[in-house]
Design a protein around this nucleic acid. Structure first.
Lengths: 159, 159
DNA sequence: TTATCTTGGACATGTAATATCCAGAATATG
DNA sequence: CATATTCTGGATATTACATGTCCAAGATAA
């Protein structure tokens, strides 16, 4: 899995602590963890294209959450960055095996492919069942100072 | 996920249909699906190192299952090829964030990391609960001619 | 009008997967 | 014993993709 997923998760979480209506620039979000701003910006664009973030150009512009954190699942974020394809890609080996046919879609009929897809479905189900709001609540319970510290960073960003 | 997992799955399944005690060469296993023999051999070596296959050098040598199919889970095969690491690698971004400390292992404490690990655990649990014997039984039910066709390929391999 | 910020494309770099080749060790067979 | 077969493991090449940078153009607040 690409590192962009981790960046996106943390950035969305940080944005969930921004003042309502406030847009945060890619530069400030990158400064949080010393990430390359231009590259993080690419991930943020992907989140915006997926409808998770909304973007605003120009001065006082930047990114903000486009939905309530309760409406953003962790799966949404993963799919926005990684795409919708399964990690296990069935190359339809059976097509070249004994009795293999060009007319059969082995992604659907190969038993191995089915088992791997079933396992990934469990993974997706777990991620779909957890929202940004869940994560935020857990963090706030364990580290109550985090919201304030985050907003402070937004206002008083280094560099 | 690397394509080697798919090759390994199909090769183990094919080996489960070999005559008891018979070793099958990497060349013949590769001929099944027109795979590059030398590269498939590398994957088979990894399976052997993991104890899933046993290997025999010399004439009449090759690979065979080292355990009963009931004792080989799909997770075993995936781990043998892909390694034990999670797909989501926590880079401990929080270390550089506000209040981050070099003395904390954020792979354990970061809530995002925990959520991602929990999801992968569900994936692993699904794979661990399915064995090569399960897959073989399903295939034999749906395609009863497969065992015979596979053994025939072993004996009468092209090239 | 100017400075800020996103957008998207082009391009460079680095790294891992994929693939090939070879020398050496093991071993069945005659 | 001699030979052919096959695995073992390292070296190396190739390719694909992730990572990262840069720039011109468009949008917009002040």
């Amino acid at each position: 899995m690409s590192e962009g997923v981790e960046w996106a998760m943390h950035s969305c979480l940080n944005l969930s602590w921004a003042e309502p209506g406030e847009a945060v620039t890619a530069r400030r979000l990158a400064a949080f963890y010393d990430l390359p701003p231009a590259y993080l910006n690419k991930q943020l664009q992907a989140l915006a294209r997926a409808g998770i973030l909304s973007s605003v150009s120009g001065p006082r512009g930047g990114f903000r959450l486009n939905r309530a954190p309760e409406q953003i699942s962790l799966l949404d974020i993963v799919v926005a960055i990684e795409g919708p394809e399964d990690a296990f890609r069935c190359e339809q080996l059976l097509r070249k095996g004994p009795g293999g046919s060009d007319d059969v879609d082995y992604r659907a009929h190969c038993v191995i492919s089915q088992e791997m897809r079933a396992a990934e479905l469990e993974w997706r189900r777990a991620l779909a069942g957890r929202t940004l709001a869940d994560v935020r609540a857990t963090v706030e319970t364990r580290f109550p100072h985090t919201p304030e510290a985050t907003r402070d960073r937004f206002v008083n960003a280094p560099t």
